[in-house]
Amino acid sequence: MTTKTQPIAKADTSLLSIFAAAFLGIAIIFVTGFANSQTIHDSAHDVRHASGFPCH
């Protein structure tokens, strides 16, 4: 019984880690490319233009 539940639990934690990593990545891209704050916009301005993110 326990040997059967083990792989399922392991798969659950890896899926959680995968989603956590992907979410962190998406959050970083959002701040770099989309965040509206004037300071972030101004400092990320050239990267946004050069990367083809819509910018102002």
Binding site: S14, S17, I18, F19, A21, A22, L24, G25, I26, A27, I28, I29, V31, T32, G33, S43, A44, D46, V47, A50, S51
Partner: peptide, 24 residues
Amino acid sequence: LYTASYEIAKSFGYALMLVAGFAL
């Protein structure tokens, strides 16, 4: 210098999505 910092941040963000894909 700002561009370099944000390029590295962006690269890290993309890398996180890539390795998440590798893991999947």
